[in-house]
């Protein structure tokens, strides 16, 4: 049959669900091994964060779509969590290979890293379903859950979300072409506008780089 937009969207959803069917709701044995290799084991904080963000996501989803859809929000969040653990494992494997390191204590105890990675995973799920937002599952096309909605839900700075996108795409080879285009669109939205909003961490980074440049340009004192 010719590929209609709805059929294409449905196949993307089915593909996502198929990929995530084999993923787990909790960290895999390989992830647990990485956690155990850390100077400070991040496992408890990771599980606590996933649980607390689920409550927040479910509440915001229900507020946006309708109280009757809270369970749908919970299901979407759970798919996002599976993708989050799956991508985290893939990222750590590639970083281990690239850096010949097994102790990722600093990265795995970084709250912003985990919140950004989980937000990206949930955004992939939301965008996949969003393309097929129809009356059938109760979410109306008018409810705009599209990016950057997830940033507000997780109270996440756009530039921190931006930092995980490329590594996320590299770590998840089964992302569809449409999804990669969507994430690229998110990048452009962030770089062209969201990252320049007041309070963005980008301004601090620019300030630090300017300070480094000015220090590098200062002549050395004669004693040196």
């Amino acid at each position: 049959h010719p590929q209609t937009p709805v059929r294409a969207a449905m196949s993307n959803i089915q593909q996502l669900i198929m990929i995530l069917n084999s993923a787990t709701d909790t960290p895999s044995d390989i992830l647990i091994t990485y956690f155990n290799n850390c100077t400070v084991n991040p496992k408890d904080s990771i599980l606590k964060r996933v649980e607390s963000l689920e409550h927040i996501f479910k509440k915001k989803f229900a507020e946006a779509v309708g109280q009757g859809c809270a369970e749908i929000g919970s299901q979407r969040y759970k798919l996002g969590v599976r993708l989050y653990y799956r991508v985290m494992e893939s990222m750590l494997k590639s970083e281990e290979e690239r850096l010949s390191v097994q102790n990722f204590s600093k990265l795995l105890n970084d709250n912003i890293f985990h919140t950004s990675l989980l937000a990206c995973a949930v955004e992939v799920v939301m965008a996949t379903y969003g393309r097929n937002a129809s009356q059938s599952d109760g979410t109306s096309a008018e409810t705009d859950l599209s990016f950057p909605w997830i940033l507000n839900v997780f109270d996440l700075k756009a530039f921190d979300f931006y930092k995980v996108i490329e590594s996320f795409i590299k770590a998840e080879p089964s992302l569809t072409r449409e999804m990669i285009k969507h994430l690229q669109h998110c990048e452009h939205q962030i770089l062209e506008s969201l990252a320049w909003q007041s309070g963005s961490p980008l301004f601090e980074l620019i300030k630090q780089s300017k300070e480094r440049e000015s220090q590098a340009e200062q002549p050395e004192p004669p004693s040196a």
Partner: peptide
């Protein structure tokens, strides 16, 4: 992913982006 413009250098990854190198 061919359409995606990868910007990280060879020696860069998620660890550098979160200052964990």
């Amino acid at each position: 992913a061919q359409d995606y413009h990868f910007g990280l250098e060879e020696g860069e990854g998620i660890s550098e982006l979160f200052d964990c190198d």
